[in-house]
């Protein structure tokens, strides 16, 4: 019997025990009860869209207007895809030296220079909308597409 061998065996057994305890601790410490029980994601929902959701989901998007460009793009560069019946919370940041006018549908907003504004449009119905941003020599059109059965909101930024 050698002491070195004993040390090796002790490290193997104690190490395994310590690690089992460490893993258990982590599994417990990072476990939190689910909001409610959901069906397991094994195969049932693979590849299917989110489905009908009645609650008020919110899509966040931000448009930064700076140096004659919106999010670094020229006219028609941004398309927002929003699922049907969702709320769009759009923040427009005006980094220009002039005030901006934002028109979506019938509503019109004014975003003063060097400030931002949160534009909230609840319960979007299906269809294509244009979002017009203008001021001084800037005219920019972004597109909002509200689609039924869309999995999640999605921002397309073209170059």
């Amino acid at each position: 019997m050698t002491k070195a061998g004993l040390a090796v065996l002790l490290i193997i057994f104690l190490g395994t025990a310590v690690m089992a305890a460490f893993i258990s601790y982590n599994l417990i410490a990072t476990s939190s009860p689910p909001f409610r029980a959901y069906p397991s994601p094994f195969s049932k929902y693979v590849g299917q869209p989110l489905g009908e959701v009645q609650v008020n989901q919110t899509a966040l998007a931000s448009l930064v207007v700076s140096q004659g460009k919106v999010n670094g793009t020229t006219n028609n560069g941004v398309i927002l895809y929003i699922p049907f019946n969702w709320t769009l919370n759009l923040t427009v940041y005006n980094k220009e030296s002039f005030n901006l006018t934002v028109i979506m549908g019938d509503a019109s907003y004014t975003v003063p220079t060097n400030s931002s504004m949160l534009i909230s449009i609840p319960h979007l119905s299906e269809g294509n909308y244009t979002l017009l941003i203008s001021g001084e020599d800037l005219t920019y059109q972004a597109n909002v597409s509200v689609i039924k059965d869309l999995l999640s909101p999605y921002v397309y930024i073209g170059e």
């Binding site: 050698t2 061998g5 090796v8 193997i12 395994t16």
Partner: peptide, 28 residues
């Protein structure tokens, strides 16, 4: 885990382990 036990028991059940040889030390 069984592999290291195999080698650990080999050392443990021996009469001595030759640390004086640098190869023995390196392998250990």
């Amino acid at each position: 885990g069984v592999t290291v036990l195999n080698l650990g028991l080999t050392i443990f059940l021996a009469k001595r382990y030759d640390f004086s040889d640098i190869r023995g030390l390196a392998y250990f």
